[in-house]
Nucleic acid binder design. Structure first.
Lengths: 198, 198
DNA sequence: TTGACATGTAAGTGAGTACTCACTAAGTTA
DNA sequence: TAACTTAGTGAGTACTCACTTACATGTCAA
């Protein structure tokens, strides 16, 4: 029987939650499985989180703090928009690869969570991702880097599908995806659309 | 107590399965809810499908028959590639809007189904969608419509994210999405990338 | 008219769910 | 070292799940 401080256990539980979502899907996320992965009894989980719901909310909190903070920082940088968009996309992709369950949590549960708070938190994250992408594109247009005839909102809509494209790619070619360069490959396509003068 | 032939009930059950996935998500899909929507007892469902799994497989079968058939037909047409890609994308989007649960079923469950048969059926569908998209792009390049320096595989990867972009859009702006023109808007962006000469 | 069959219901089953409870052991501090 | 807090256990709660069973009834061919 190993005893650890609650902060450590909370981290372990969040990791376990994400890995179960990634490997077995949301509908197989049970407290029993979380307890098994953490290596404690089911009851012990409830020393560190009051409910299963709070475990999931804690994961969403972390996305807010870690991923969104880094995306905000990149979007606010003062470098050429194309460099910034690449950095933005790469940071985005890197986080999703390191925390594989997040994609499913955000994209497939955002719409259907019975819990209004959980739902609105996830929608807020998606909305901000889109807003930041639009900001970078608008910046690139005002500096003349990119063509102004492109519809920025539609472009950002397309951008939002990229994380799932990554997931599909990982599933279709397991082991065979060069995740390092995934963001560069996608930007190569996006860049053509951004520069093209109709 | 209304009695209907099993073929009719099977259709009703498939519809109910899809509408629950769409409105409440995969993790809220229970036989009890399916029975409620169909308007029969839970036991009655098992007269028409042996298991819940078979209900889901029947839905996947229908996607195979209806959606993939229409996509295959469009891809094989002999018209300019840009026309064909628009038709392809619009057929794709139209089907997903008419059968809203499909997107979640395919994209979020494909990776995590415990059931190897279900998983391989869904991956086959995703793979073929990508293959058909690549075919159209390659055709457009050989006729000189599109620029040959574009990486076709990466382009198709990006294409595969569009259905989820649509879903995100529907969730972020409920009621406010012009779904009719969604495919046209996306093609407007994709077309810029396809035509652009580096 | 009958009887077989298809379709239905209601009331089960066992397994799984989130969560709680009484209790125990390890660490910290007075 | 005794008192107190924190982190653990394992059995038990009420409930939901997919699925089954026993039985009823509408349909239709013989």
């Amino acid at each position: 029987m190993e005893r650890k401080p609650t902060e450590i256990r909370q981290e372990e539980i969040k990791k376990a939650v994400l890995s179960i979502i990634d490997q077995e899907g949301m509908h197989n996320l049970s407290t029993r499985k979380v307890a098994e992965r953490v290596g404690v009894s089911e009851g012990a989980l409830f020393r560190h989180f009051r409910t299963k719901r709070e475990m999931i909310l804690a994961v969403v909190d972390e996305v807010e703090e870690v991923l969104m903070k880094s995306l905000r920082d990149v979007a606010a940088e003062e470098s050429p928009a194309e460099d910034r968009l690449l950095k933005f996309l790469c940071a985005h992709v890197r986080y999703l690869i390191a925390n594989k369950g997040i994609t499913i949590l955000l994209f497939s549960e955002a719409a259907h969570a019975n819990d209004p708070e959980l739902k609105s938190r996830m929608l807020k994250i998606l909305n901000e991702q889109k807003r930041l992408a639009k900001k970078i594109v608008n910046d690139g247009m005002s500096t003349g880097e990119w063509d102004k005839s492109l519809n920025v909102d539609h472009f950002a809509t397309l951008y939002m599908g990229i994380p799932i494209s990554l997931n599909i790619e990982l599933v279709l070619n397991p082991g065979g995806v060069n995740t390092d360069n995934f963001c560069k490959k996608m930007l190569a396509i996006l860049g053509r659309a951004l520069r093209s003068g109709n």
